[in-house]
Design a protein around this nucleic acid. Structure first.
Lengths: 253, 253
DNA sequence: GAGTGGTCTAGACCACTGA
DNA sequence: CAGTGGTCTAGACCACTCG
């Protein structure tokens, strides 16, 4: 294994060789393999002993690297079976990114309706957020999510056009299940983490119509920037949530 | 060290002896000491070797227990110095519970003004949330937070009267810094984790006056239930945030 | 330099899964 | 039963802090 200093995503850019522990370097190597698609979402990755042999380190060091990856939800450990690449196409993981709950606890059936899907040159604010060049192509999607048949969420979504070639409203419409699941299986783009900015806003004409609320009614605005393995932004999403009978849940610790 | 199964907070109540690893048991013991005040917020706890000797386990096992406590923010590790009990009276930790950011990045000066503070018998919804008996005493606080002199947050707060004997509006008003810091130093009550429910609502007459916004203006409603070491609820808080120039930030991963 | 937490190793044993 | 991850130990060495 390399013993010279390796750069880490969290290392300061300042002076000094910036010591990086072995397990961090291993973690980086495994992450690269995940990013390169050596093991795909849902698949089994090599066992700890195998990886230890591959990288010429002890099993304990590999273990610590995988522990960190599991903490970040990049990977899921299953005792007796092995370690699997995390996937959005799993019942259990879905509500990690969809934090809306019904007041009565039951979330009920979720259905998604695509209102619009088009390709265009990125508006200034979108290209800035997605770190694209001005005028780069983006896919713009508008969709409504229904909970038990009632429209609750209106999403406007922008995706880098170069990463989502061939994405159309039809393909979106015919896909069952969460969008992020489709993105990872159909386009090889996996959303890893996201930052959200929440605000209360008044419903405009469009929102009023699509969410069936009065104009000016208070809506929860959720602006999300999603990133993939290397922290590159790959989705900008502006959501409007009707919180009459639902709430956005959050845990602080 | 005990070798028989020990109950953990996350153990299922189902059948079986429910195997609990040693480091979990150690973690529970350390948590009990924290709760009992053996080491107070901000103080140094015994070194890993000392604790290993005390509990008759290896240093590695103590290490894993402390790692878990550090992950939960109960404790802070400082290489070369030791491990410290986490405290809310620290610049660094303040924005763990206050997630409001200014649009321009700078949060600026935060000031707090107590509008009202009184003792009363808990209303039904409050006593239910705080798991009190109907009619138990609570302290009710109303306060406004100003960012750079502008009122942005209106909080209504309820605290179990038995835990906060002697809390008055005067004592609150004269205290500088975050409320949770005062709670831990003055009343020995430490907020560990909290669940929040976010909604968009319309400003009523009171909010409109105290936050200087139009009646009916959209406000972000944040209902928070805070818990202490043993997961007992110790605070219910209903906040109204003016998100004209601020947003509630959240990270998903 | 002594004391702290942080890393790395090697080996033993345990708990769980599935053929 | 073999193979996986999970726990626990003991010891060596490193990085950091402070007197």
């Amino acid at each position: 294994m390399v013993s010279s200093p390796a750069s880490s995503t969290t290392d300061p850019v300042s002076d000094g060789p910036a010591f990086s522990p072995l397990y961090q370097q291993i973690k980086t190597l495994i992450t690269r393999s995940l990013q390169a698609g050596e093991w795909r979402p849902g698949e089994l990755i090599p066992s700890e002993v195998e990886l230890a042999a591959r990288y010429k380190v002890s099993q304990g060091t590999v273990r610590k690297a995988i522990d960190a990856l599991a903490d970040e939800n990049l990977v899921v450990r299953r005792q007796g079976k092995g370690t699997f690449v995390a996937t959005h196409s799993e019942q259990k993981i879905q509500f990690r990114f969809l934090r809306l709950m019904s007041d009565d606890g039951e979330t009920g059936n979720v259905t998604r309706r695509v209102i619009d899907c088009r390709r265009l040159r990125a508006p200034a604010d979108v290209s800035r957020a997605l770190e694209l060049k001005a005028g780069d192509p983006v896919v713009e999607v508008r969709r409504v999510m229904h909970f038990r048949g009632v429209p609750v969420v209106l999403d406007d979504i922008w995706l880098p056009g170069n990463l989502f070639k061939g994405l159309t409203g039809e393909r979106l419409a015919e896909y069952r299940g969460p969008m992020y699941g489709m993105f990872e299986t159909e386009f090889g783009v996996r959303m890893i983490r996201a930052e959200e900015q929440l605000r209360a806003v008044a419903a405009d004409a469009t929102a009023s119509e699509l969410l069936q609320v009065a104009q000016g009614a208070p809506l929860l605005s959720v602006e999300r920037l999603s990133r993939t393995y290397d922290d590159k932004p790959v989705e900008l999403r502006r959501g409007l949530y009707n919180t009459e009978a639902h709430y956005y849940r959050n845990e602080l610790s």
